[in-house]
Design a protein around this nucleic acid. Structure first.
Lengths: 117, 117
DNA sequence: ACCTATTTGTCCGTATGTATG
DNA sequence: CCATACATACGGACAAATAGG
């Protein structure tokens, strides 16, 4: 695993780390069931703090990409098809908007507000 | 604002803090546009670390419940449970689309396709 | 059943950066 | 230019869950 990050990149280190993992999953370099390096190991090889790696892992967990367990480590859950994941999110979003009586236009408006940020 | 948390509660402090805010929003004690106390202030009054409060705020932001801006503070966005959930879903959707390089227009197209079904 | 090492989880503290007003 | 307030990163300490001997 020859992952790299750039200390001078304005992008946060934990974001860079998360992106490396996301890409690996998308490219099927990492597959469901695969273990990620321990926080300590990755922190050592990237020369960053342990907490920085764990923060990256926790964001990936929140996205449903990996599973984290104390004493066990990080394991890939989701398959790498980002587009399929996006499609699922759209389905859920539309359903939720419908439940709340939010119109299509209002929904688009909400999205545009987020996009411009 | 007489918010309280319990240091002996096994539930994490940042979760307790987030829950207090969630409840206040649900009960309309906090309404869209209202400002939350600054991290420093709340940390002082709850006798916890600044980071603990900010972590709570950040999870609320990820859920779409509040907006966080440097120099400005935390402002309530969503008005209720369902709306908060929807707002959070929009945040995640836009983030995922961005990661995949999906444009705003393509995203709208995907949504329209689902809406008409 | 016990003990130990491993690994993530939380919390604190400090320092520095960046956007806002 | 300056003060405010959140954002990131580092480091340390301890807790809790897991795995292995």
């Amino acid at each position: 695993m020859l992952w790299q990050i750039d200390q001078r990149d304005p992008q946060p280190l934990y974001e860079q780390i998360a992106n490396v993992v996301r890409r690996a999953v998308d490219e099927r370099t990492l597959r469901p069931g695969d273990r990620l390096p321990t926080g300590k190991d990755l922190a050592g090889s990237l020369d960053v703090n342990l907490h920085t790696v764990l923060r990256a892992y926790q964001t990936l967990r929140d996205e449903g990409l990996i599973e984290l367990r104390r004493g066990r480590g990080a394991v890939v859950i989701a398959s790498g098809n980002g587009a399929a994941r996006l499609s699922g999110m759209v389905v859920e979003l539309v359903a939720q908007a419908d439940r709340l009586g939010i119109s299509r236009d209002e929904l688009i408006q909400m999205i545009d507000k987020k996009v411009q940020e």
